[in-house]
Amino acid sequence: MIRIRDQRDTDAFARLFDYFAPRIKGFLMKSGADATTAEECAQDVLTTLWRKSHQFDPTRASVATWIFTIARNRRIDLLRRDRRPEPEDLPWGPEPEPDQSDVIELQQETARLADALSALPEAQRDLINKAYFSEMSQSEIAKITGLPLGTIKSRIRLALDRLRHAMK
């Protein structure tokens, strides 16, 4: 490995290749790769070894440890690639018009919600507006209003309960 690293010795690389290629392939097959994938990956590992031989440091790892670490990382890359879901087909053209009964039902529900919100006590309505329409966290609301966090949580819970009953 030192001769490959320092002198780019192709004969030394050929010997290293002959020795490690079947061992890497076996290692990858034991970890679940099929024979073809294992062989391609082993070749890729040894190509990486040639390209990155300047990074080999015998004080940090043995040659075998360094090579099998590269193989293990390559196997993890393959697993991640294989588990990546394929993008779904995107629909083309305009979306279909919603059913008119659904539109009317949504409008009626929206009107009921608006009525229920306006019927809430001002303190609760203000907190619901901040939490859900301004998308503020309860901690942020506590800082702005100066109210204790427990009070904020209680008022929001009561307001949501009233809204739930009003929407039934």
Rank of each mutant, 00 (worst) to 15 (best):
T110G: 02
E39P: 02
R8I: 05
F56E: 15
L149V: 12
P94G: 11
D99E: 10
A38V: 12
T10L: 14
L163V: 15
R112Y: 01
L46W: 05
S101G: 05
V63L: 12
T110F: 00
P58F: 02
F20D: 01
G150L: 02
D11A: 15
I141S: 04
V63H: 09
E109A: 09
S53H: 14
L117E: 10
S154Y: 12
K130G: 10
Q7H: 13
N129P: 01
K153L: 08
L90Q: 08
S62E: 06
M136E: 12
R164N: 12
R5M: 06
M1S: 08
S134I: 06
S62V: 00
D126F: 03
T48W: 03
F17R: 13
A166I: 11
E40I: 05
E88R: 00
L46I: 05
D89T: 08
K30S: 07
D9P: 08
L49M: 01
I144Y: 00
A61H: 00
K25A: 11
I104F: 02
K168D: 14
R75K: 06
T110V: 03
D18V: 09
L149I: 13
W66H: 09
L79D: 09
L158T: 07
P94C: 04
L90V: 14
A38G: 09
T59V: 10
L90P: 00
L163R: 02
T65D: 04
F20S: 15
I24Y: 08
L28D: 03
R155F: 00
R80M: 00
I70P: 03
A14W: 10
Q138D: 13
I24S: 06
T48Y: 04
L79V: 07
A71Y: 12
P148N: 13
T37S: 08
L49E: 04
L160I: 00
A131I: 07
R80G: 08
R5A: 08
F27G: 09
T10S: 08
F56G: 09
H165K: 14
E88S: 11
G150T: 10
I128L: 03
A123D: 15
A142L: 15
P96S: 06
P96C: 05
D9L: 14
T65N: 06
R84T: 13
T47F: 11
D161G: 04
I152T: 11
I128N: 09
I70H: 08
R81Q: 05
I156C: 07
A61E: 11
L113G: 01
M29Q: 15
R23D: 13
E86L: 02
I67M: 08
R3K: 14
L160T: 15
I24M: 07
I67T: 06
A12N: 02
R74T: 14
D9I: 14
I152C: 13
R23Y: 05
L117T: 00
A114P: 01
I76L: 07
A123V: 04
L127R: 12
L117P: 04
